[in-house]
């Protein structure tokens, strides 16, 4: 790998662009795709790897190639700059998620409580419109306050977010689903909201609850059986 290729891969990542680094294993020849000219078979293999988000070995014209996908990190949007969020953010960051904390309450969503973290101080619906959750985004609401959680969940349900979770007891969750249903979401759509969010590991402390939440996000992303609800 030449320094130029290394720089180009890192630049794509900084810009948030997904690319494929195609390597011919016999001699180490490399191309960054889809930006470079290449044989159609190489371009096609790169496109498949990109769409699957999966690095893979391929045989093209009798030669072994490796298609390495470099995609921007998965995102986690945390709504509610509460105590559990303070435990959740570093855990998710350690797992490679790009985290944004959404909370319009300045005393909660402060740089002192969330040093070095990307924070959004807008009302959750506006913040969500700005953040545009995609299929590589998880959304977790933690405020217990319908004024803040509901607009975020409403927007999340209108997005292809791969994970939507909400903290709160079973009773408050049932009430939450009723309110969201009144906003026009069908029962099938409402079933996307995982509540109370978090795998059942008997979590008690803020850090344990944060662990149960990230564990559920990982389980859903990786298609683990334990994620079934």
């Amino acid at each position: 790998m030449t320094p130029d290729i290394l720089r180009a891969v890192l630049a794509a990542r900084t810009a948030g662009r997904a690319i494929v680094l195609a390597t011919r294993l016999a001699d180490g020849f490399q191309l960054i795709l889809p930006e470079s000219d290449a044989q159609q078979a190489v371009l096609d293999a790169a496109a498949i790897a990109l769409s699957r988000d999966e690095s893979t070995a391929v045989e093209l014209g009798g030669q072994a190639w490796f298609m390495q996908v470099y995609a921007p990190p998965y995102r986690l949007i945390v709504v509610g700059a509460v105590h559990i969020a303070q435990a959740l953010v570093p855990l998710a960051a350690a797992l490679g998620y790009a985290v944004t904390v959404v909370d319009p309450r300045r005393s909660f969503n402060s740089p002192e409580r969330f040093p070095g973290v990307v924070r959004a101080g807008a009302w959750p619906d506006e913040a969500m419109d700005e953040l545009k959750p995609d299929a590589r985004t998880a959304v977790v609401t933690l405020t217990h306050d319908p004024k803040l959680d509901d607009p975020a969940l409403d927007r999340a349900l209108r997005s292809p977010a791969f994970f939507i979770g909400s903290l709160g007891s079973r009773r408050t969750h049932a009430q939450r689903l009723e309110r969201l249903g009144a906003l026009g979401h069908s029962p099938a759509t409402l079933a996307r909201v995982r509540g109370p969010v978090g795998l059942a590991i008997g979590a008690v402390s803020a850090a344990e609850i944060a662990l149960s939440i990230v564990a559920e996000v990982v389980a859903v992303r990786r298609g683990a059986a334990i994620a079934a609800r």
Binding site: R7, V9, L10, R13, A71, A93, A94, G96
Partner: peptide, 13 residues
């Protein structure tokens, strides 16, 4: 790379 292991970043450093 979708994981937190930033090996290329480490190499650049």
């Amino acid at each position: 790379m979708t994981d937190s292991e930033d090996i290329l970043g480490t190499i650049a450093a």
